[in-house]
Computed example of a mutant assay.
Amino acid sequence: MQSSVEEHCFFAAEVAAPLWYCNPESTGLEGLLATGSAQAVSGNADMARDRAMHSARNDLAMRLEVDVRAMTESWIRQTGFENIVLESVHESVSRQVASQTLRGVQRYRHTTLEDGTVIVLIGISRESLRQSVITTYENEEALHQILQSKEAQQRLDDEIRRITGSAQVQP
């Protein structure tokens, strides 16, 4: 769905973007929303749209769950006696990983900006999110029941071995 740039914000200096890019909630869409962007290379808008979708899906996945690993190192050193020289270093490295299965993602809007950047608005509707939570709960409940069943079978086998003094229980 193409959109005009009537109500807009600024994507970069002097490059107008639709308001939905800067403020997805302004669309009135309900659910979890994300935007993405990618510069078209050699005029390949399809590839840019795919990369923009990828960027927006990453944003959605990281909103749902993210594993962050970070390391920071800082130090200050003073050298010299009369001509004091201060050296300082601050280094920070972080890595973020998201592993999510996204179901029900829809592309709601996309457009190409004046500078050739393709932007997209995607989201997961409130109903899809609700259904995903229900499915996850039901799957976890089923796994829990299977585990309980296996534990009960193991307790029964242990009791039979204790009573009979047998090392093996026949299935």
Rank of each mutant, 00 (worst) to 15 (best):
Arg126Ser: 14
Gln145Val: 07
Gln100Asn: 14
Glu138Met: 10
Glu91Pro: 00
Ala142Leu: 10
Glu82Met: 10
Asp67Thr: 06
Ala48Asn: 03
Glu127Asp: 08
Val85Ala: 08
Glu82Val: 08
Gln96Asn: 10
Asn58Gly: 13
His144Leu: 05
Val120Arg: 06
Leu60Met: 07
Val105Leu: 15
Ile122Arg: 02
Val133Gln: 15
Ile84Met: 13
Val93Arg: 12
Tyr108Thr: 08
Asp67Lys: 07
Leu143Ala: 10
Val93Tyr: 13
Lys150Asp: 04
Leu64Gly: 02
Phe81Gly: 04
Met53Trp: 01
Ile146Pro: 01
Ala70Lys: 09
Ile124Arg: 07
Arg57Gly: 04
Gln148Tyr: 09
Thr79Lys: 15
Ser128Val: 01
Glu151Phe: 03
Arg103Lys: 04
Ile84Tyr: 10
Trp75Phe: 10
Arg69Glu: 13
His54Trp: 05
Lys150Thr: 02
Gly116Ile: 12
Gln106Asn: 15
Ala152Asp: 11
Asp115Tyr: 10
Ser55Cys: 05
Ala52Gln: 06
Val89Asp: 07
Ala98Val: 03
Asp115Val: 11
Gln78Asp: 11
Thr111Tyr: 15
Thr135Tyr: 02
Asn58Ile: 09
Thr111Met: 15
Ala48His: 00
Leu143Trp: 01
Leu64Glu: 07
Leu86Asp: 09
Ala48Gly: 03
Gln145Thr: 07
Ser99Gly: 15
Thr117Leu: 12
Glu127Arg: 11
Leu102Met: 11
Ser128Cys: 12
Ile124Lys: 00
Leu86Lys: 11
Leu102Ala: 12
Gln96Gly: 09
Trp75Ser: 06
Met71Ser: 15
Met62Asp: 02
Glu151Ala: 07
Arg95Asp: 14
Val85Pro: 01
Glu87Gln: 05
Glu127Trp: 04
His144Asp: 04
Leu129Met: 04
Ala48Asp: 00
Thr79Ile: 15
Ala56His: 04
Ser149Asp: 08
Arg126Leu: 14
Glu114Tyr: 03
Val68Ser: 11
Ile119Val: 12
Glu73Arg: 11
Thr79Arg: 15
Asp59Ile: 02
Ser74Tyr: 15
Leu60His: 01
Ile84His: 13
Val105Asn: 14
Gly104Asn: 13
Val66Glu: 08
Tyr137Gly: 05
Leu147Glu: 02
Arg77Asn: 06
Ala52Trp: 03
Arg109Phe: 14
Leu113Cys: 05
His110Leu: 06
Val133Trp: 06
Ala56Ile: 05
Ile76Glu: 13
Ser88Asn: 14
Val97Asn: 04
Asp59Glu: 08
Ile119Thr: 05
Thr101Trp: 00
His90Met: 03
Glu82Pro: 03
Leu102Glu: 11
Leu121Phe: 08
Ile146Phe: 13
Asn58Leu: 10
Asn83Leu: 05
Gly116Ala: 15
Arg49Lys: 15
Arg77Ser: 04
Asp50Phe: 02
Ala70Val: 01
Leu113Trp: 02
Ser92Asp: 10
Met53Arg: 06
Ser128Asp: 13
Trp75Pro: 01
Glu65Cys: 06
Val93Ala: 11
Gly80Pro: 04
Gln96Trp: 09
Gln131Asn: 10
Ala56Leu: 04
Asn83Met: 07
His144Thr: 02
Ile84Gly: 08
Asn83Arg: 09
Gly123Glu: 12
Glu65Tyr: 12
Met62Lys: 13
Leu143Pro: 00
Thr112Leu: 11
Leu147Met: 01
Ser132Tyr: 03
Tyr108Gln: 13
Glu73His: 05
Val118Lys: 05
Glu138Lys: 10
Ser132Phe: 00
Trp75Val: 02
Leu60Asp: 01
Ser74Leu: 13
